[in-house]
Nucleic acid binder design. Sequence first.
DNA 1: AATAGGTATGTTAACGTACTCATAACACAA
DNA 2: TTGTGTTATGAGTACGTTAACATACCTATT
Lengths: 328, 328
Amino acid sequence: MADVARAAGVSQQTVSRVANGLPNVNEQTRQRVQAAMQELGFRPSYAGRSLRDGRYHSVGLCINDVTKFGNLSMIDGIASAAREHNCAITLVEMSKTEEFSLAEATRRMAALPVDGIIIGMSRMAPDFETFDPLPGIGTVIVTMYAHPRVTTVDSDHYGCSLLLMDHLFKLGHGQIRYIGGPSFSVDEQFRRAGWQDALERKHIEPAEPLEGDWSANSGYEAGRYLAEHDRTMTAIYAANDQMANGAIAALRDSGLRVPEDVSVVGVDDSLDDFVAHNELTTVRFDLHQRGREVFEHAVPEAGTAGKTVAIRIPGQLIVRHSTAAPRA
Amino acid sequence: MADVARAAGVSQQTVSRVANGLPNVNEQTRQRVQAAMQELGFRPSYAGRSLRDGRYHSVGLCINDVTKFGNLSMIDGIASAAREHNCAITLVEMSKTEEFSLAEATRRMAALPVDGIIIGMSRMAPDFETFDPLPGIGTVIVTMYAHPRVTTVDSDHYGCSLLLMDHLFKLGHGQIRYIGGPSFSVDEQFRRAGWQDALERKHIEPAEPLEGDWSANSGYEAGRYLAEHDRTMTAIYAANDQMANGAIAALRDSGLRVPEDVSVVGVDDSLDDFVAHNELTTVRFDLHQRGREVFEHAVPEAGTAGKTVAIRIPGQLIVRHSTAAPRA
DNA sequence: AATAGGTATGTTAACGTACTCATAACACAA
DNA sequence: TTGTGTTATGAGTACGTTAACATACCTATT
């Protein structure tokens, strides 16, 4: 910047004014400075600016595995919210093997150019209870668990189960079999709790839940098992669409029709790109809204700052043709 | 930092030494400083550090739509390469609507804390030919097109077609129908060129290619059309697995067996999570290797810097059970 | 006793920016 | 003429860090 100033025969301050498009610069001077900038290939220094005004215009996002559907949708939602605020995302992917703790994640993120910290907690962190956010920087954890000192935001992974169960109950189903994700997953824990509570509210003893790994193949195996072992089954709730899709394939391979013999529902509404004529009844989450909530609590504009809240964004039931009334 | 120094009764420099774990600090002093840091909640300033040593430890990534398979895999691959170098990713998602130009993308990225710039060019930019990278910062474009002044890296979207066509030729197929992605897509352009060249090398006039939008539904429609209009067809090459999956469903709905009546191949190896018993013959790309190449050319370590290259990373043929010899 | 080599610590400077305040020139009204 | 306001520009400063150099002291060797 000093070089540009010298080349244009003005002060550094005038260069700054031109660079930022501020008023009160003579038109001739402006052109002279711009020519000098061009000449010297001047680019304002991000570090200098940030040091000066204390903002980075970027929000930190720490997740463990980019490719999981939940995390991908997180990036997408936050990216669009960030763009609306003219912000970038500073992404750190934690090693998949390494032990994940909130303290460690926070420590890593705090060393980066971020105005706020977002941590995706897809499995319970060992230090969740005791965790204290760093003072002076907005912190949001994306998870269903509430925390007394940190704002948490998530899609409502409990409520989605209630929506689906209610839909199945209204069709006339009683017992509903459950195919869950891996038990360490927070999403799984809440989706499953919703299933269980919904049944218990109707005084139905929940039948043994099955555990998959979110993949279609694991859903297939579970579906196969149920088709062979549960003759009275009329409905399956798979905790995501991928497993639901696998379960449907298994039922059909076992000679059962969907939905005439067995109804199947999933969660996420993630099949459209992969499966033709997607007929699965599911719950769709508004991931952009979640992204916006997460972003705005992590980087509070003047005034928004403040107390710890726990935000749960409801999903929307999408009824297609994988559900019907049970056989008489 | 000055506050910490005052509280601990030492100089700023000593605080710096403690913060960075440098030697030559008395054990007692170290503890005193650390106590003061704890007390005051000291965190080193990213801006100060960057200003001092001119590095950001982050690489910029500019893409248009996070959710597309190609872009997601880009994030994943680069994230793992970045982590190996103890780097973060500064992600900017360009508006999906806004006109995309390399100059604009570069301008945006250059204003961020990045040691290198990576631009995903999934469709041809209007200024590709005339584009000049900013001097002083490593720039890589992820695309199949080569550029005289910029390093470009991509999975080999041309070669994958040759692999698949060769596989089908060896099984005894002649004419092979093509279901492509949208024609503005760079990946599509090269996959299609590979299909066409492979046929022409065998002196087979390529039959009219069909255009989809990468989704399973578009593959279904194309498959349906082919089943009805091409009685002699023995093989379909769909430019991604999702469309291939749709095409297979269409063929079966039309009473054709896969692979007995028609062989089908795709690209990406992306179905595993979504489809049980995935039987599709396809090409898998090593996205982590691509990520590593991209990263290392964007942020050249001392010595690696230099000339413009064009790197094409070959895919690997995965033969499953959607392909067989044609009917006699 | 003088010198050399190590260890612990402090001082200075520079990285690039933009705010605040000061100054200068000029126009216009009283 | 004097005062008042506007516009264009410059000077000074502070943001937080760390390399390089300087100093002080202590120990071991000659």
